[in-house]
Write a protein that binds this DNA or RNA. Structure first.
Lengths: 202, 202
DNA sequence: TGCGAAATTGCAATGTACGTATAAACGCAG
DNA sequence: CTGCGTTTATACGTACATTGCAATTTCGCA
């Protein structure tokens, strides 16, 4: 990890990352071109693609990590731990991994999180990634809960993630802060765990 | 609605639609260019965008209808009908509306459905559209269930749709028939209604 | 210092999407 | 049936993301 070369690479990566998030926040995602990001980071436009596979990748670079976080929590099921408890633990682990996140970043994680919810193109990408991850998560669940059939596991994961996501989305669209979104996510999980019938006592 | 003009427009639209679905099926979505679709329909490339806002729109033209179906079911809440019952009714209405679908199309609905599942780009788009519709559905729920707060409504919709979608997706990925997918969807709803804690009794 | 590997860059090409202006087709009144 | 206004189709041009390829620069190290 030593060497001028490595340090320079890291610096360039950070410069691109910072420039991108700043520009996205200032003028919006669609209104920012890769050329502008490169210019702000003082590299050639072509170089951007040496660091990020696409414009979206600047934001979703760590998406895999969060999937891995979920798989890790599942693999670490405590003896006899019920499904609902495990999933709640999974949510907290996700929040924690989101809060840390930064390896290359610094104070721009909150900005990034806001962008993910606020920009339609990025939101779409995030939801898609989430969806694609769910069958894998369901499969992992099946392994630690042998009595669970695949379809039920999928339903459980989908119900959990869907409640979480849409509750958060609604909170965000109502102008809530990041904290509000988080609280909404917890509320969503609570409802998913207790079941929609728990809302019937209208 | 009479006139040479209108008929020609409809014919061109169908020609583009048919050409697009056929080419997508033959060579794949990404491997087909708008220029090729236009050529196959014997119009200028630019004309394609006079009929469809984007390449994806060829496939997702009726996406709005299904959202409307959901809103209609909600608006028609029977007196005192509990949330969980309404949502179950919504699912059946969705299945029905999916089976009908065609207005401008003809026998290409099955092809279109297959493409939506098979092509990653289109699958992503479909999931995204579903997600984007959910806040509106949640809002509609709030109107007929005044005691429901927006976040809880969002959680309910998300839990419902998520369970449905992922259960179906898992069934589909396991090579299930359309019938199997449908059954899985029903199972997903059941789990969402009863809550994830109902799976705890492992 | 100088060689080889790695990083950076420039250039061209492809493809989606959109704006604009021009030409063609149409419907209708006179 | 002829000319006019409207709608449609088309050609041309632009912006931008993305990729391949080749030239070039920079770096690490002998």
């Amino acid at each position: 990890m030593e060497g001028h070369r490595e340090r320079k690479k890291v610096r360039t990566r950070r410069a691109l990352l910072e420039a991108a998030v700043r520009l996205f926040s200032e003028r919006g995602y669609e209104q920012t071109t890769v050329a502008e990001i490169a210019a702000a980071a003082d590299v050639a436009p072509r170089t951007f693609f040496a660091y990020f596979a696409s414009k979206e990748d600047v934001i979703f670079l760590h998406a895999d990590d969060r999937g891995q976080t979920m798989l890790d929590v599942i693999a670490g099921r405590k003896p006899g731990e019920p499904l609902s408890a495990l999933l709640s633990r999974m949510f907290e682990a996700l929040v924690r991994s989101l809060a840390e996140d930064d390896e290359l970043d610094f104070a721009l994680s909150p900005l990034r999180a806001r962008l993910m919810f606020a920009e339609p193109a990025l939101r779409a990408r995030g939801l898609t990634l989430m969806m694609e991850a769910q069958p894998r998560v369901a499969e992992a669940l099946c392994e630690v809960y042998p009595e669970l059939d695949p379809v039920s596991a999928g339903a459980a994961v989908g119900s959990f993630m869907g409640a979480l996501a849409v509750a958060g989305l609604v909170a965000q669209q109502q102008g809530g802060s990041n904290e509000d979104v988080l609280t909404a996510g917890r509320r969503g999980i609570e409802i998913a765990v207790n079941g929609l019938s728990s809302l019937d006592g209208s």
